[in-house]
Structures are given as C-alpha cells and as structure tokens.
Amino acid sequence: MLGHDAEDADAGPASFVGRSGELDALRTALAARRPITLTGPGGVGKTRLARRVLDSKRELGDSFGTALGLDLPAAARAAAGDEVGAAHAYGAGHAYWQAVGHPPRGTPELGPVRAEFERTARSALGDRAYEEAFEEGVRHGHAQRGRSHAT
C-alpha cells in the first residue's frame, strides 16, 4: 500500500546515494511545518524521497511529522491519477492526525492543497469507493503506528 509499490521494491539505500542534502532539507521543512512541493520529471525519485522521509518519521515515533508528510504522496498520487492510492494515503494520515489531536488538515497552508486533491480523488472514484479506500488507509495507519510504538 503506502510506500511499497512494485516499482519501488528494489529501491534500497543505493538509490539515495548523494541525496542526503535533499533528505535533510525535506526533514527541516517538515519540522518547521512549512508547505513542501516536490517537483521534477517522472522517474527522478520524488516519491521515493518522500517515502524515505516518512519512514524516518515513523521510526522516530514522530506522529505529527508522519501525518504532515503523508499529504505529499497522497497529493502526488491524486495528481497522477492514482485515486485509490491517494485515498489510502489520506486515510493513513488521518490515523496519525487523530493521534496528535489535530484536524486532518494540520497546517493552514496545506489545507487548500489537501482539499483540492481529496476532491479530485473522491470525484474520480465516487463517494463509496473513496470512503472504502480511505478507511483501509486509516486501518493501515493505525497498524503502522502500533508497530512503531511497539519497537
């Protein structure tokens, strides 16, 4: 589901050689709660970069950073036409937002972006299919949180 597409299955540490500056910049922006946009042509590793940061946030038990960071791949998936993936990511993010006691929109700057891409995904899937995918993401998010707190 989140972060485990077939195309990324072999993407290990070697795929991040020389990208420590990008990782640090992304982590700093998330910590400062600044809006983030990853741009570039397809295949350069935008999604892998976002996933790597999310993995580190989860490992640290940073629920706020994880919730905020899940909006990145969710919006990217909605923009790319992967509405089910977007709904899964938004649902998982919702589980993390619940954990930190914030509304799912988190920061005011990201609210309109999130709302636009949620509407895009919901419109393409229909309400029922979107809600089912969203709830699957919520269950996944709660399971991920449970695993990160158990270690």
Rank of each mutant, 00 (worst) to 15 (best):
A89G: 10
S20P: 00
S148V: 09
A29N: 01
S148P: 02
Y96N: 08
W97P: 03
A99G: 13
V44Q: 04
L125M: 02
L38T: 10
A115C: 10
L60A: 15
L125Y: 06
A32R: 15
T151Q: 13
A143W: 05
R34N: 11
G61M: 09
A129L: 07
S15I: 03
L2Q: 08
S148H: 12
F16D: 07
A14Q: 13
H4C: 02
Y130S: 02
H4I: 08
T28G: 15
A79Y: 03
L23T: 00
G43F: 12
G146M: 01
T47K: 04
G61C: 08
A124C: 00
P73G: 09
V100T: 05
S148D: 14
R19W: 00
W97A: 11
E118S: 09
A29Q: 00
A14C: 00
R147A: 14
A25S: 09
A80P: 00
T107S: 08
G81Y: 02
H4F: 05
T37E: 10
S148Q: 10
Q98H: 12
S56A: 07
V84F: 03
A143N: 05
G141Q: 11
G91F: 05
R34M: 04
A121H: 04
G65R: 00
L70C: 11
G42K: 08
D127R: 04
E135G: 03
G21E: 13
A133M: 09
A95M: 09
E136I: 01
A124N: 02
A74C: 05
G18V: 04
P35I: 05
S20Y: 01
F64C: 07
A79W: 01
R52T: 05
L110N: 15
G21K: 10
G106P: 05
S15V: 03
L23I: 09
Y96A: 15
R128P: 00
A87T: 04
E136C: 03
D82H: 14
A92L: 09
A67M: 07
D71W: 11
R119F: 01
R119G: 14
D127S: 03
A95D: 07
D8P: 06
R119Q: 15
P108E: 15
T66W: 12
E83I: 03
E131S: 09
G106T: 11
E7A: 14
G106E: 10
G69F: 05
A11E: 12
S123I: 08
G42V: 06
A124P: 02
A25C: 00
